[in-house]
Amino acid sequence: MTGSELYLGLMSGTSLDGVDAVLMRADQDGRVRALAHAYEAFDDTLRAELLALNSPGDNELQRAALAGNAIARVYASACQALLREQRLVPQQIRALGAHGQTVRHRPGEFDGTGFTLQLLNAPLLAELTGIAVVHDLRSRDLAVGGQGAPLVPAFHRAVLARGSADVVVLNVGGISNVSLLWANGRSGGFDCGPGNCLMDGWIHRHQGTAYDAGGAWAAQGQAHAVLLERLVSTPYFRQTPPRSTGRDLFHLGWLDEQIAASAPGVSPVDVQATLLELSARCVADSLSAFAPGAWQELLVCGGGAFNDTLLDRLRALLPGVIVSTTDTQGLPPMQVEGAAFAWLAMRHVRGLPGNLPAATGASGLRVLGSYTPA
């Protein structure tokens, strides 16, 4: 192989807001650079159906299959918009990495292997875009004893690690995860807990907005001490990594139960403040418990990178650590995860492993994903 190749990465996360598409150039030596970004929102009907499919329900096999078709169409629309903007044709893209929409994530449960389910009709996506699709990127890691998540630490190590500093990369999507990048070359990572999923759900219920812009509503309230302590006592937060989680555990029904048991009269704005504090605490506490060290920098990406109140709380809980966003390293926060799945597609095409066993708990390195040709 000579020269460089273009890849697309498509990511829709537990925030359930839409899909980020990122165009990435990969050189022969493995160096990569994000070139462009497009975003396509889910409509209210699809968003509601995806949220409902996180829990058992009537006729869910048919509904999940049809939702997979709908996701392929949204993904294709995002790809087409990006190609038009960049004046590219599908034949110029080597492959696209498509995460799909996670609706269940139960690694290691039930039969020792468990399962993870990301909805996506990959053949339909290949037909709609004319581009080869690398998909089902988590299952191979589960097959060798891993969690299948988080998958981004391997990408973070490739593009954000520095030999001069111990760096944590914090992705705050619906769920928060950290990548641990030590200056000596060691690396790891794990899911911390809820990032935006509870805050987004709560403000939508009480304010009718999709998210708390800048954390402004949370800043008007006070964290409720009793409720907060009940939330942080959830057994997941004491679980030793490797670990991963999702809406299977952290959802509004679970939150309602915790409020009813510990703070039935709490005001909605104080709940929002408590949820923001939980999102900050689960990061700081998990670093202290499971990755203690002289961390010098915390680089934040995902939607949470724009929550100023959350970033301020992280600075307060992590004294001495420089808290900034991945923008400072030339990678805009909303492009990081899309770029990661473009990178995973490149790794699959080149026959290279994409997982990081230190983060997922897999017994070894594996080439991730399945391939559907254009």
Rank of each mutant, 00 (worst) to 15 (best):
G369C: 06
M24K: 12
C301Y: 10
D136L: 00
I131T: 06
Q335N: 13
A305Q: 03
R47P: 08
S267K: 12
A95K: 11
A165D: 05
A158R: 14
R63K: 01
H156E: 01
W254K: 01
G351H: 02
L61G: 03
G214L: 02
Y75T: 00
A342R: 12
A21D: 11
E49I: 05
N184D: 15
E109D: 13
L96D: 07
V103Y: 06
Q222K: 14
S267F: 02
G214T: 09
L287Q: 11
D29R: 11
S164Q: 10
P235W: 02
R347V: 04
D136A: 02
N69F: 01
R313V: 09
L16G: 11
W182F: 08
L356S: 03
A52I: 12
G330L: 03
T234F: 13
S55V: 11
I131L: 00
L228D: 08
T309M: 14
I131D: 01
R205T: 06
F42K: 03
G145C: 01
A149F: 05
Q101P: 10
E297R: 15
R205L: 05
H99W: 07
R84C: 02
D136I: 06
A340E: 09
S179V: 05
Y371H: 13
E5I: 01
V103C: 07
C282F: 04
I131K: 00
P332E: 01
G189H: 07
E127K: 08
D256A: 15
A41Q: 02
P150Y: 03
S370L: 04
H224R: 14
C197G: 12
T45R: 14
G174H: 05
E5P: 00
L83N: 05
H37P: 06
A374D: 08
D285K: 14
A284S: 13
E229N: 15
P241I: 08
A52F: 04
H251R: 14
V32D: 02
V266P: 02
G112N: 00
T113W: 08
S12D: 11
D285M: 10
A81P: 05
L66M: 09
V300C: 13
D270E: 03
E85N: 07
V321H: 04
D29T: 14
H251C: 12
R157H: 14
